[in-house]
Structure formats: structure tokens, C-alpha cells
Nucleic acid binder design. Structure first.
Lengths: 333, 333
DNA sequence: TCTATTGGTTGGAGCGCTCTAATGCTGTAG
DNA sequence: CTACAGCATTAGAGCGCTCCAACCAATAGA
């Protein structure tokens, strides 16, 4: 249970600790003879460098901290894939932590991440107050994904929710829909842009927006539909704030004896794996998630290397994915 | 961008570095006066301890490493919740890393985790070879979740797949089903026990098992059903190897004009959030995921504290969750 | 022959912290 | 008055590593 140190390797290879250090860091100024002797000794002892001691001594770090606000959401998994890809490529490791959507837990997770003194931090849709983010940004480079910031030392990567909502409305209008309601995401991240995009697109088509208050869950989607049914205000098409909400909406529509898409069309947002299930087969808006991760990691590494000081604000274009929950009003011909 | 050190705090509070160290570790042998002076200085400077330096100096760690084989699977998120709960409770932090189901990436993730010299390691359904796990277990306590091991220094936490499959069969039989097929998980983890449990339960009821080769995806579930339809061998009930497979099966059944559960009953396995969606509302087998995490963390911490040396093998009982995809054959009365 | 130069190698300081042993400082007993 | 606890406090070594300056051949240039 006790790992060998550089000293042990040096002793075994008959060289100095400093030389072992050079070999471990792949320095070119080591003779081939010594290098192989050191590597052999390291191999035999099962030695691997102590990341913390290294980073303590070098006053640098090859670790990027990633705070995932919600591990349950597969959305973030794909962003992490993108981050990981770029990080690994550039010789950085990542460590992940999660706050479970609770500000208190997230704060703790942040503290924990910071205590490792990583080279930089990527926060995926954080729920902590902006001040906490600002404080972290004073200590190291920070990149935000799926949350905006005005702090000039913080880079951000977001999708263009307005464009996404417009794509959905355009699609529905092109099918012939005129009465299109939006089930709103309330306080959720990105709910604002999506709502604004929806309203703007409706008005651009000369249609009357109908924003229905809802949330990012399937229960909320179902509830919103039941409300519309009671008020006799059901439109011919629904644009949900996200896929979960859309699936809840579909379920409530079917419960009421209505068919999707013959009677009502439904569009989700996010293109989660859920939407792709044949059983659901939801028309939705796709965000380039892995690209989010890649851009975030790129931006962070630029800051780490001090190649840039002015903030970057990535706004990525979403795209429409047409599946089987949208059709012309009155059903497919 | 430069964080204050203990020295800075000491200077500001007019005490020695050692005293600051005592305060930071909550030692009782510090006068109230000095303590508050130190805390005030720390607060003013925005000081927080350097976890790596601390662990280097103390030769101990308060960090638990968690390797999640697949971040895309929400199953693991709930296990992590359980781990986090226990760890936090006992003053430990967790750092997460992922291997994305690729042995090579996972190996690297493991190395990275080890380089932080955590107090212990929890591996969630790892895909690396047993030898790699054994090697890690020589250096620190290791607990495996959703994967078994015969190494005596490694603890394991698994669900009892045989019992779970039996619960499902019993449920279907009690509804009156006699022809029940199992869509098999192939090489997937836990597929074996589930298959064995299914076969044993069928035989216990005097019924003929029908194992259909499939996989842990919704496409595979659909494919298996299409095969059964072609062969004209469709039973009245299906036990899928997991929820995704079950949803694929349902979708293929509906495509063929059959109704679930009137014509065919379907049972999933895992009780993922997918199963709970009203639109799916899948009868399934629930595993106590958070409990997995809690038990894993408990077991690990026991090893870390050297309270135990003989291995622990937790085998948790799953439970049946009845929703709307099962009914008596011939439809609900 | 003597001095530069080069490339490989090494000792030692120091990163931010913990921990042990020693220190100073009361207060009380002998 | 000295002795000795008992407590709060501190100096200093050391955790495993990096990095700098110094060092030491061996070769090249004068």
C-alpha cells in the first residue's frame, strides 16, 4: 500500500533524483543509456509520478476541473466527451465534480475542485450565484457552458436559443400551422432566449404568440396541456421548452384521446437520447453538445497558456431534427 | 491569479504558520482569540487550504476517486449521489473521472485518478481487465459496483439479477401469462444472472423458457421483436434485459399493430427515469441505486480506516415496479 | 597548451502544508 | 521561592517533486 517515490527509482537506476525527474518529463537532454535504465527501474518498481507533488513543485497544473451541475442529464455527458477529447489531446487531465443542481452542494463542489489548484475550470450550467463564479475567476481561468456571464475574465459557450426556437416555428409554419403555443421553461437556463425567439418568429410570420407557463419536466409538460384543454385553448402545434416537457405534453394529449401528430404536432428542444428513441421519435432542436465541450476546452486552454485576455462568447447554431411528432394540421395527408 | 498561502494568513493575523494550520484543521487546542483572528485574516485574504500540499504533508488524503464507466447512463448518476452523500458526511470529497466504456480511455482515467493518491477508489461498472483492477488494489482500497471480482482486497456491490428476473416472471405468471420470452442482454454486465433467474423462475412454474438473443439498446429490442414476429413465435409477455431494450420492443410491437399491454405485456429492467415517463410508463425492476453508492462508500471508508480486511460482497435485492405495460393476457378486464 | 563551449548530470532550495518536539507562559503545589 | 504541571504556541524538518545553478567531462577553437 505504499507507492515508490522518485528517490527509489533513482537509487535503483544508480542516478540522481533530478535525472529521474528529467526522464519522467521526457526531457531531450538525457542520454539514451540513462533514460532506458531509469525507465527500466521505474517499470520494475511500478512507479508512477505523484501528480500533486509535481504540481506543487512546478507551480503549474495539467488538470482541468469540470463542474457538472447535473450528472443525471445526459446532455452534460456529451459536453464532457468534447472537453475530454481536447484536453487529452493537449496533455491535460480532467477531474469532474457535481453539485446536483443544489447551490449549496455546488458551492462545495467548486471549493473542492479549487483546492486541487487546477489550471482552469469549466462550469456546465452552474446554479451558483454570479458572485461565486466571479470569485473563482479571480484565481484561475473559468469557462461557462450553457450559462452566460458579463465578467470579462470569463469565457462562455452557449447555444443560440433564439435561433433554435425560430427554426422550430418556421418548421411548423411551413407545415401549415397557425396556432402554435410555447410551453415556457420558466426560470430555467436558456428559457429566456427560447421564449424570445419563439415570440419573435411568431410575430415575423404575422401570428399571435401564445406563451404557456411551464417547466423543464415531463410532469410540467403534461400539466400545461391539461390546463390548455380545460381552457379550450389547445392550438394545433406545441413548441416545448425541452424534450422532457414535450414527452409529458404528448402523453397528456394521448390521455385526452388526441393523436400526435395527426391532431397536434409537438416539437421538443435539446435532442436528448430520449427524443431519438423510436417509441418517442420526437421532432426537436439539436445542440452541438460535443462541440460545446471542445470549444470550452479550447477557450480555457488559451487562457491557461495566456494566449488571450479578451473574453470569448461562443454562440452556436442549433439545428432542426425532424422526426415523427410533427405533421400538417389535420394530420398527414 | 495567485492564491494566498498559510504564510500570508499567519503574517496578517500575527501568528505562526503552525497555528494557522491548527485553526484550519479545527484543532481544539487554540485559544478563541487567536482562532477568530486567524479566521478573520483568512476571510479577508480569500484564503482556502491547498488540498494537495495538505495531503502531501500529512501523507493522507480525504479524497475518494470515482471512476464512472459511462457518464451517459443516468444509472451511475444515482450511484454517485449515494457515494457523495456518505463521503460528504464523513468529511471526504470525491473526484470523478470517466472512461467512456473504452478500456484504453478507462485505463488512462484510472491512472489519472491514482496520480492524485486518493484514499480509495470506487469503480462503477469498469470495463478494464481484472489485472488492472488488481494492480490498483495493491496501492489503495478499491470497491467495485456492478462488477464482480474474486480479489480478496476488493469489495463489491451488486444487485441480485436472478432475484430481479424471478420477480418479473412471478408477476407475469400471476397475471396469467404462460408464454413469456426473455430478450437477453448478451455479453452485457449482469446479463448472465438475469438470464439464469429468468430460466430458473420459468422452470419453477413448470413453463418453457424462451431466450431470445438481444442487447442493451432500444434498436436491439425492436430487432428481436421483429424476429419473433417473422418466426411467428411471439409470446404473450416479454421480459427485456433492460429498459432501453423494452422500449425498443414496445415500439416494434406497436409498429406491427399490436397493443401493449392488451396484446403483449412488457417488463423492463433498471427502472431508469425513462421508465417513469408517463408516455412510457414501463413495468420494470428497480435497483436501489443510491443504496449501491452508500454501501460502496461505506465499504471503502471501512478499508480506508483499516477497520476491516476481509472482503465484503453486497448483493442487493431489486424490487418490482408495476406500471402500465403489463396486464393479463388478452387485455385488462 | 590553455580556454571556451557543449551536453549530460547533480545538489540543494523550495512549493504549501503537517507534525513532532520544544518553547514560553501561566498557575498551583511543595 | 523553586518546581512542575498544563496549556497555547512555535520552530524546523520533511512530504515528492521541479527547477536553477553549478559541475564535470569531452571536444573544439585559439
Amino acid at each position: 500500500m505504499v507507492r515508490p517515490t522518485m528517490e527509489d527509482v533513482a537509487l535503483r537506476a544508480g542516478v540522481s533524483r533530478a535525472l529521474v525527474s528529467l526522464v519522467m518529463r521526457g526531457s531531450p537532454k538525457v542520454s539514451e543509456m540513462r533514460r532506458s535504465a531509469v525507465l527500466k527501474a521505474a517499470e520494475e518498481l511500478g512507479y508512477s509520478p505523484h501528480a500533486m507533488a509535481r504540481s506543487l513543485a512546478s507551480r503549474t497544473s495539467t488538470v482541468l476541473g469540470v463542474m457538472v451541475s447535473d450528472l443525471h442529464n445526459a446532455f452534460f455527458a456529451e459536453v464532457v466527451d468534447g472537453i475530454d477529447e481536447v484536453a487529452r489531446d493537449q496533455g491535460f487531465d480532467i477531474i469532474i465534480n457535481t453539485g446536483g443542481r443544489s447551490p449549496a452542494r455546488e458551492r462545495r463542489a467548486l471549493e473542492s475542485l479549487l483546492s486541487f489548484r487546477p489550471a482552469g475550470l469549466i462550469l456546465l450550467s452552474p446554479v451558483v450565484p454570479a458572485t461565486a463564479i466571479g470569485k473563482a475567476a479571480e484565481q484561475l481561468p473559468v469557462v461557462l457552458v450553457a450559462r452566460s456571464s458579463r465578467v470579462s475574465t470569463v469565457d462562455t459557450v452557449n447555444d443560440d436559443g433564439e435561433t433554435g426556437a425560430r427554426l422550430a416555428v418556421d418548421h411548423l409554419v411551413s407545415l401549415g400551422h397557425k396556432r402554435i403555443a410555447h410551453l415556457d421553461g420558466g426560470e430555467g437556463t436558456q428559457a429566456g432566449p427560447r421564449r424570445r425567439g419563439y415570440v419573435a418568429a411568431m410575430e415575423a410570420h404575422g401570428l399571435v404568440p401564445q406563451v404557456v407557463s411551464s417547466e423543464y419536466t415531463d410532469a410540467a409538460g403534461a400539466r400545461a396541456i391539461r390546463g390548455l384543454l380545460e381552457d379550450d385553448a389547445l392550438p394545433t402545434a406545441i413548441l416545448s421548452c425541452n424534450d422532457f416537457n414535450a414527452v409529458g405534453a404528448i402523453s397528456a394529449l394521448e390521455d385526452a384521446g388526441l393523436r400526435v401528430p395527426s391532431d397536434v404536432s409537438v416539437v421538443g428542444y435539446d435532442n436528448t437520447s430520449l427524443a431519438a428513441l423510436r417509441h418517442v421519435s420526437l421532432t426537436t432542436i439539436d445542440q452541438p453538445r460535443a462541440e460545446f465541450g471542445r470549444l470550452a476546452a479550447d477557450a480555457l486552454l488559451q487562457r491557461v497558456r495566456e494566449e488571450r485576455t479578451e473574453p470569448v462568447r461562443h454562440l452556436l447554431n442549433p439545428s432542426l431534427v425532424v422526426r415523427n411528432t410533427t405533421a400538417p394540421p389535420g394530420g398527414p395527408r
